[in-house]
Simulated scan of single mutants.
Amino acid sequence: MKLILTHEVTGLGAPGDVVEVKDGYGRNFLLPRNLATPWSKGGEKQIETIRKARKAREIANLDDAKAVKQSLEARTVAFAARAGQGGRLFGAVTPSDIAQAVVAAGGPSVDKRKVEIPQPIKTTGTHKALVRLHADVSATVTIDVVATTA
Rank of each mutant, 00 (worst) to 15 (best):
Y25G: 08
T49M: 10
T37C: 01
G24I: 02
G43P: 04
F29C: 07
Q46L: 15
E44R: 09
A14L: 14
G43L: 05
R51Y: 09
A60D: 13
G86W: 05
T6L: 14
A83I: 01
L30D: 11
L35V: 06
T94F: 02
D63W: 00
E20R: 09
A92C: 06
L35S: 05
K55A: 15
K41H: 04
D63R: 14
L62I: 15
G42L: 02
D23C: 00
R51K: 15
G87W: 12
L12T: 09
Y25H: 14
G16N: 10
L31Q: 09
L89G: 07
S71H: 07
I47T: 06
G42N: 13
H7I: 00
T6W: 05
L31T: 11
G11C: 09
R33D: 06
A81L: 00
A60G: 07
E73W: 02
G11W: 12
I47C: 03
E48P: 00
P15Y: 10
P32L: 09
N34M: 08
A65I: 08
I50L: 15
R33M: 10
I50K: 05
G24N: 11
I98K: 04
Q46V: 03
A83H: 01
D23M: 02
T49P: 00
S40R: 11
V21A: 05
A67T: 05
I50C: 07
V68G: 01
K69I: 04
I59D: 04
D97E: 05
A74K: 10
E8P: 00
Y25L: 14
L12N: 07
P15D: 10
W39Q: 07
A14R: 14
H7C: 09
V77S: 01
E58Q: 14
T6Y: 08
L30G: 11
V18Y: 01
A81R: 13
A65V: 06
E44Q: 13
P32W: 08
I59H: 05
V18I: 15
K45F: 06
E44C: 00
E8W: 04
R57W: 01
G86H: 05
Q85N: 11
